[in-house]
Every structure is written in structure tokens, then in C-alpha cells.
Simulated assay, not measured.
Amino acid sequence: MKKKLKWGVLSTAKIAREKVIPAMANSDLYEIYGIASRNLDRAKETAKSLGIPKAYGSYDELINDPEIDVIYNPLPNDMHVSYTLKCIEAGKHVLCEKPMALNNEEIDGLITARDKFNVKVGEAFMVASNPQWLKARELVRSGYLGKIKAVQGFFSYFNDNKDNIRNIEEMGGGGVWDIGCYPVFTSRFVLDKEPGRLVSMLEFDPQFRTDKVGSVLLDFHEIQMTFTISTQLTAYQRMLFFGEKKIMEIRIPFNAPSDQPNEIYIHEGDFSKANAEKIVLPISNQYTQQAIDFSNAVLEDKEVPVSLENTKANTKVLQAIFQSSSSEKWVNII
């Protein structure tokens, strides 16, 4: 019989409280055993509301608890690397929220530590465990759409709260790090290719100094991928993959609902007719599946859904977006 893993959660972040922890309830593979905050009362309050057995008044206390097997790290972006490293050095497996790092070179140290301490470490791109993205990848790789020549994406929301960490430059805020990572990651995931170069244009908020609107053109070697993101536009998201035979449309690609089936639409190009093929996926929660996949990687000593090597490749692209916008030139991704 498999050992039931004990997960600990670093911080009472909103994504942990509202999405990840509720999605991880009632599993035969694992339990949420503890949650930490720098404020013990807040940790206790959150633990009580979510049915978590143990609360900690510091992150280090949770990290060093021998009862904890796996740690979920949803701390602010600028704290991801340092606390993930602490977890690794304590012998814990770690699932860290995206973006794992704000500089791809920092990931090298995590890879070295991961291998030294023989633990599993992954980036929390829940889309990698979502059935709709697994199906999308299958459709593209099978040739069902024909040869893919172009990909388009869009992801936006509106948030102009100066106190929100997404709008704080020093904490790794801005659209590229928060949501630009998704069209980059899913394109790489589906195409199974790495872009060779890119050119971008970013508009920065004069008060926050974070990027609020951005457009990017990625060269995937015979496949052109474009996307636009914004933290100050009406909420919208979409991903389109254009093949020589058909077009694949994913209408809710990133915040996929957990209370209704996910749907993929296949078009043959004649939009004057209602001829879209609809592929309906079973109802699922991508955060639940992410936890299952990561737990199984630990229990069965398998590869995690999103490895540090994958993370490093994605981070290189995100860094290049800033470099291109600053130089107003194409940037090679090395």
C-alpha cells in the first residue's frame, strides 16, 4: 500500500486558500497536514477554516518539521527560489508556484540541490495536468490539424490595485511574469518545440513600473506564435492553433472551470457554417490533477509534470521578452 504523503503549505496566499488547498481535499494519496504564516493567529485561522491539522508561525518551522513530506510554495515571486532551496535542503519535495524564478540562472542552483538531496521539484503549471491540454497536445502531434503554421494567444484581466503583489515591481509583478508565462508554456507544451528568437513590445504602468500590456512574436522555426497579455484590460483568454487542414480553439485555456466540462473546438475554415467539431472533456479540477500527478511522481519515483529543466527553458523566453522590449530588437533565445 502506498504511503499517504503529508503536504505542507508555505503561506496563506489567496491561490492556496481558494484554489489549490480546496482542490486537494479527500485524497487517498495525500493530505494537507500543515500551513504556515509569519502570523501564527492567521495560520491557525486558515488551518481551522480549511480543516488542516497543524499551523505554524514561521515558514522555517514548517520546512523543518520531519512529518512533512512535500511542500507547496505559493509565496510571492521574489521569494520562490530562496524558499524552494530551503525546502530542498531540508529534504522536502517541492511544488512551487509559477514563475519559479525571475532569472533562469537561479534555476541551476535548484537543479544542483535537487540532485544532491534526491528530491522531486516542480513548477506549478497546472495546465500540464489538465485533460484539455493533454488532448490538445495529442491532436496537434497526431497531425489531426495538419501541419501547424501559426499559434495565437490572449490573456488579460484588470487589476490597478497599487498594493496587490502583481503590481509591485520588486516582488516580481507585471503581466509577463504573472500571465505571459502561460501562452509561452502551453505553446512549448503542445508543439514540443523551443522558440529560437522573439521580438516584443511592452507598455509599463508609470506608477507601478510593471508591464501592463504586452505583445510578443515567437519564432518556433517554421511556426509563428503571437500573443498579447494585459493586467489592465477586461478579462479575456483564448488560445488558437492554426493547421493547414483545421484550426483548434481552446476557449478557456488557463482558468479552466472545475464545475463544467472543458471544450475544444475544431474549425475547418468555413465560418459561414456552424461546422465546428466540439470535443468535450470530462469535468475535472486541474489543481486536483496537478496534486495527484506530483504526488504520484514522489510515490512512484517518476518525472514531475513540469521539471526544473522545463522551467529554465520557459524562464529564458520570459527574460528575452523584457530584453527585446528594452532593445526594440529581435532577441535570440539561447
Rank of each mutant, 00 (worst) to 15 (best):
S215K: 11
I229E: 04
K329G: 00
T311F: 03
E263G: 00
M79Q: 14
D270Y: 13
S11I: 01
S307N: 08
Q232G: 01
I333M: 12
N64E: 12
Q289S: 09
Q319N: 05
G122S: 14
Q260Y: 11
S324N: 02
F271T: 07
R238D: 06
E67L: 07
L85M: 15
T46Q: 08
P305G: 04
Y287M: 04
M100T: 11
G8D: 02
G173C: 05
I15Q: 02
T228F: 11
F227K: 10
P183L: 07
S129N: 09
L218A: 00
N255S: 12
R38F: 12
C96S: 15
A124F: 08
K245Y: 09
L318Y: 05
K302E: 14
E303L: 02
N296I: 05
N255A: 12
E309N: 14
T311E: 09
G180V: 11
S272K: 09
T315Q: 06
I32P: 08
F220D: 00
G214E: 14
S142N: 15
V304Q: 00
N332W: 13
K19S: 10
D60P: 00
Y287A: 03
I292K: 12
G91T: 13
I68Y: 10
E268L: 00
I111V: 07
V94A: 09
G153L: 02
A23Y: 10
P76A: 04
I229Q: 10
I179M: 11
R114V: 03
P282R: 05
D78A: 14
L110V: 04
I88F: 08
Q152K: 07
R197C: 02
N255M: 04
K135A: 04
S37R: 09
V9Y: 03
A25E: 05
I264T: 09
L102A: 06
R166V: 08
P76R: 03
A274Y: 13
G269P: 13
R42K: 13
N73P: 10
N26K: 13
E222V: 00
G173H: 14
P253S: 09
E105V: 10
Y33D: 13
V298G: 01
N104R: 11
T186P: 01
I279H: 02
T234R: 09
P74I: 02
E268Y: 09
Y182H: 15
A256Y: 08
L10Q: 08
D60L: 07
D115P: 06
N314F: 09
Y287C: 04
I264W: 03
K6D: 14
G243E: 10
I107N: 10
R114G: 04
N310P: 05
N73W: 12
K135R: 13
V317P: 02
S142H: 01
P131Y: 13
G91N: 03
Y59D: 00
A274D: 09
I333V: 09
K316M: 15
V70L: 13
A235E: 15
Q207H: 11
